[in-house]
Amino acid sequence: MTPRELDKLYREHGHCVLRRARRLLKNDQDARDVVQDVFLAIFREPERFEAKSSVATYLYAAATHACLNRLRDGKTRTRLVAIEASVPRHMNARGETRALAAEILAGLSDEEAALAVYLFCDELTHDEVAGLLGCSRRHVGDLATRLRRRIMERVA
């Protein structure tokens, strides 16, 4: 991918990544950093991007992973606040519930954390998650079952 092609991709789709990062990180500067991370990663490893049929799906997953990495690498307090704030308002969760959710999320692997965000924060369908993970809907169902079990174990 040439710099010109990358710039075109950034101009056309950067706003989606920025919006996604803002929602997950609740911090505009961090979100803008994530946008750069995502697009410069494409420049470094274009083959990972070019193998995907849906630009939007690839960028959505890449933005999610970049945000989770940033949350994981940041201070715990920052992470807790950010993840807590990303819980949808309509869930109307109480503070301690949100804190527990944040703690659980922090204890998951990268893949599990992304899956948890897709299922419980974004409320994506298994079809959509399958597109993001590049697997079958049935496999997403299996992963979701396993994830719920893990979460229940942690809660217990």
Binding site: E12, V55, A56, Y60, E123, E128
Partner: peptide
């Protein structure tokens, strides 16, 4: 049921 952020991204990308 509701529009997901991902589906909006795909809408804006002209992929739907």
């Amino acid at each position: 049921l509701h529009v997901s952020e991902l589906s909006i991204d795909r809408l804006l990308a002209g992929e739907l």
